[in-house]
Design a protein around this nucleic acid. Structure first.
Lengths: 117, 117
DNA sequence: ATTATAGTTGAATAGTTGTTCAACTGTCAA
DNA sequence: TTGACAGTTGAACAACTATTCAACTATAAT
């Protein structure tokens, strides 16, 4: 017989789930959001900025990375609207945009720590 | 003068944050967790499995992908202990491991939808 | 036994992404 | 106006990863 790829086996389930499925754009937005936190450098930066606003240089020193690397990642975080910045003289001070992320971070942390066994 | 990379500017802040910093292993685990949900295919699969347990074939049909691609991603989700499976005849039925992920997903969804403007 | 189907797997490919490097801007101080 | 420093940027490189392809296993039915 022909080698067709994937016929539906349980029509009822598939149709039912398809009806409840959120639209592609939203799923993309959600996974893009997770992608941002899915890099340990960015995750650390968010964690650090949650503790205190900081300039690029201090973030770099804290994490033991170059200013360039940190600046690139801050750009990513800015594009994702997770951090904002203000200028103070030569320095640029970054801070978190909202508290929302903190909640998600802490829930994820719970989840991860729970699994450690 | 020498071109040193990144001297600490605000000792007090950096030291204070350093003391509150969570350890590297934990940050890695958390960002690895986010990385899993940071792919739209896997995000969709998790979303679908939250609505109903499903076999590989139906997941593939629902998402319009090959069984192979889905199977590979299911392997990733299994390794991350986010899904489990049971066998029914020729079929392998996958389901979510816990409710924890659902919470995080929904919080992230809130966050994303809130920003849409 | 043979055929069809559900699913898995490893290798290969193509696309993505994090960091480095070097060159740049803007601000402050002498 | 010159030098030093905080930060940004684009290009390049290396590492990673999602999907495809082909070959495979296992179960069920004829």
């Amino acid at each position: 017989m022909e080698d067709f790829e994937c016929e539906v086996l349980d029509e009822e389930i598939v149709e039912n789930v398809r009806k409840q499925m959120i639209d592609d754009d939203t799923i993309f937005d959600v996974s893009d959001f997770f992608k941002i936190l899915g890099d340990s450098t960015r995750a650390k930066m968010m964690w650090a900025l949650d503790k205190s606003d900081m300039c690029v240089c201090d973030l770099a020193a804290l994490l033991g990375m170059t200013k360039s690397a940190i600046s690139h990642q801050l750009r990513t975080l800015r594009d994702a609207k997770l951090v904002k910045f203000r200028k103070e003289g030569k320095m640029v001070i970054y801070s978190l945009v909202d508290e929302h992320v903190k909640d998600i971070f802490e829930k994820a942390l719970e989840h991860v720590l729970e699994k450690e066994n």
